[in-house]
Design a protein around this nucleic acid. Structure first.
Lengths: 117, 117
DNA sequence: ACAATATGCAAGCGATCGCTTGCATGTCAA
DNA sequence: TTGACATGCAAGCGATCGCTTGCATATTGT
């Protein structure tokens, strides 16, 4: 559980990897070479990013001859939603109104800690 | 956009920080000291984790005297859903069936690359 | 007033990360 | 069969991360 979550969030933590996800979303099934174009990085860099995405099960790979095709797998994203977003969603409106009330009741919003005087 | 996404995903990338989110979900509004209990880490470690969560706008802070209270803010999680999960969700069933068809059509599932012979 | 409490700030350090470079291996096309 | 192409593997390196230790500052209670 927490292990799969770790691979997932780690995989999504890098902007380059999120960009790869975006490019696959725009055009699924691209080869490594295609993914490297218009991407300011060595092929090896892209390969290593793709390996992490693959380890997180976010992309599936299919070999066609010497070419490696990459396909998005949205299932783990759905699991993130179930475990992390739906769980916190219920509190959303309530938490917001609670916070509002708390801030109204306290005399100062108090972001800075040190005493002003 | 991509900047806020970066803070968000980076903040969620660490299991300790996700654990803190969980503990706040179980009991919102805890002080730093309370969050440190039952957590195998120095207070400073927890402080630094909380700072990242705060920078990602995932928790809000309210000072009550010398105590720092921490409250969950689920809004950024909702934004992750909108930008990253709903976007990919539409393809989910279609992508799965497509992958299934592709795998059925190819003679071998072919995870290993090197020629077997 | 003063001691205990709750927290902040900053430097240091090993571990991991992101990326590159160099070379090896498998596949296609003439 | 041979050269071009698409990709893999591994070592290295600076940057960032996660965490600790030591000391400073603000608040509470007696």
């Amino acid at each position: 559980m927490s292990d799969a979550d770790d691979l997932l969030f780690k995989a999504l933590a890098d902007p380059g990897r999120r960009k790869l996800m975006d490019r696959l979303h725009a055009h699924d099934g691209q080869t490594l070479g295609e993914l490297c174009e218009h991407l300011d990085m060595t092929r090896q860099g892209v390969t290593q990013h793709l390996a992490l995405l693959e380890a997180a099960n976010l992309i599936a790979v299919e070999w066609r001859g010497r070419e490696k095709l990459h396909f998005l797998n949205p299932v783990p994203l759905q699991e993130i939603y179930d475990r992390w977003i739906a769980k916190f969603e219920r509190r959303r409106l309530k938490a917001l109104s609670d916070l509002k009330h708390r801030l109204e009741d306290s005399d100062a919003p108090k972001p800075p800690r040190r005493r002003p005087s």
